[in-house]
Design a protein around this nucleic acid. Structure first.
Length: 403
DNA sequence: TCTGGGGTCCTAGGACCC
DNA sequence: TCTGGGGTCCTAGGACCC
């Protein structure tokens, strides 16, 4: 049976949501109508464009570029800070509305959802539902979405990316050639800035060119990714809408430091703060980690990562921090200027899947209890309510958002 | 005051085993 | 000894997404 898939994509999500919030608070100007962006915090060296208005886009501003560059392109540009917790609320309000149509919803990111609408078999019914959703979101929630209508996720996603904003587009099998093949290959999902030049060198410039290339040639040159690219160009995608909540495969936090650090003692303090955050999230998922991974970025933007397997799965702040500290000690070269430091845990298992081992001793149980008490206080009084002594003196350096 | 932060998946190479 | 080769685990790093 043919599947009926919608892809719902919020137009300029962070900027639209900020605009709606500002209007709600009595602001007269709708920042969606002027050259404006949502930007990271420049004082903390995170000054990049996170979202842009249509007017800002017309100036040539793109997501990810520095605010400095953006201002060069448009001197009258307005920059607003982001508020991730607010965005989560707006994302949830959208999700709630979509649930009225189907519970087979995959939240692909904070501002994108796939809906499996196979129960609406008639093409006309499906299209009407998409239009209805679009209208309701606009009227009831105050922001606009693009909706892609197709028979698989890839085509629905490609369709929602056609002309914006506030549009519903279809991309059915018989429309692939006319609507998708003329597009440049850079528009194809999963084709990033490394692959595009390589394809150009092969004389492949449009999605149609790619679709008509010999599949085996693509596999020979790009391996698995080559096969995927070729299938996507031909509109082939068998993946299902993942509406059941999936457990995370890894959990990590990283931070660009307010200034480059070159002392291992200072880095360790930051690492402890991050370890607390990461393990707190890990325990909230009721999971434990088997692998600890640290990331470093030097002032010259050279990235390093080092990981190691633990002797047993754990969610203990103390154990994970201690392993992370070891990794840092092993890999940090004295005097090196560090711009970013991060910690990830991977190879996660459910807490109750854990095998009882020799390491499950008294000391670990004590740590578990301590973590549990700290978590409860954090959940009750806010994440920053309780901190470890070692973190105190960096509290003003590293500020974490509530989690 | 130039370059975020959170993810997933894949690959390549070394170690080790049979 | 004329040093093959498959399988698995582990780590580092890269590509891509939003």
């Amino acid at each position: 049976m043919e599947r009926q898939i919608l892809h719902v994509d919020v137009n300029n999500a962070f900027l639209s949501w900020t605009a709606v919030e500002m209007l709600k608070k009595g602001e007269n100007i709708d920042i969606r109508t002027i050259p404006s962006v949502i930007g990271g915090d420049e004082s903390r060296r995170a000054g990049i464009v996170l979202a842009k208005s249509m007017k800002a886009k017309e100036c040539g501003i793109f997501t990810g570029e520095t605010l400095y560059q953006a201002r060069q392109k448009c001197p009258m540009l307005k920059v607003y800070p982001s508020n991730y917790n607010k965005y989560k609320e707006y994302s949830n309000s959208l999700y709630k509305l979509l649930l009225e149509y189907t519970d087979k919803i995959e939240r692909f990111s904070i501002d994108e959802c796939f809906l499996d609408m196979t129960e609406y078999l008639m093409k006309d019914t499906l299209l009407n539902k998409a239009k209805e959703i679009s209208k309701r979101v606009k009227e009831e929630l105050g922001f606009t979405v693009n909706i892609g209508v197709a028979n698989n996720k890839l085509l629905a996603k490609m369709a929602s990316d056609f002309t914006k904003p506030d549009r519903v587009h279809t991309l059915f099998q018989n429309e692939i050639e006319t609507k998708m093949w003329k597009l440049p290959i850079s528009d194809l999902f999963m084709l990033g800035k490394k692959s595009v030049p390589k394809l150009y060198n092969m004389g492949i410039k449009t999605i149609g060119d790619l679709a008509k290339t010999d599949k085996n040639k693509m596999i020979k040159k790009f391996g698995k990714h080559g096969s995927l690219m070729w299938e996507y160009a031909n509109g082939i995608d068998k993946s299902e809408v993942q509406y059941k909540k999936e457990k995370p495969k890894g959990i990590g936090n990283s931070i660009t430091l307010p200034r480059d650090l070159n002392s291992i003692e200072e880095l360790e303090k930051i690492l402890l703060a991050i370890a607390e955050q990461v393990t707190f999230r890990l325990r909230k998922h009721e999971m434990q980690a088997n692998v600890v991974n640290i990331q470093l970025r030097t002032k010259d933007f050279i990235d390093w990562s080092h990981q190691c397997k633990l002797s047993h799965a754990t969610s203990s702040t103390k154990e994970i921090y201690s392993k992370a500290k070891e990794l840092l000690k092993q890999t940090y070269k004295k005097g090196e200027q560090i711009r970013l430091i991060g910690l990830r845990v991977e190879n996660l298992i459910d807490k109750n899947e854990k095998q009882i081992s020799l390491f499950d001793n008294f000391e670990n149980n004590k740590q578990e209890k301590l973590d549990e008490i700290v978590d409860k206080l954090k959940m009750k009084y806010g994440y920053n309510f309780i901190t470890r002594a070692g973190k105190m003196d960096i509290k003003n350096t590293v500020k974490f958002k509530d989690n």
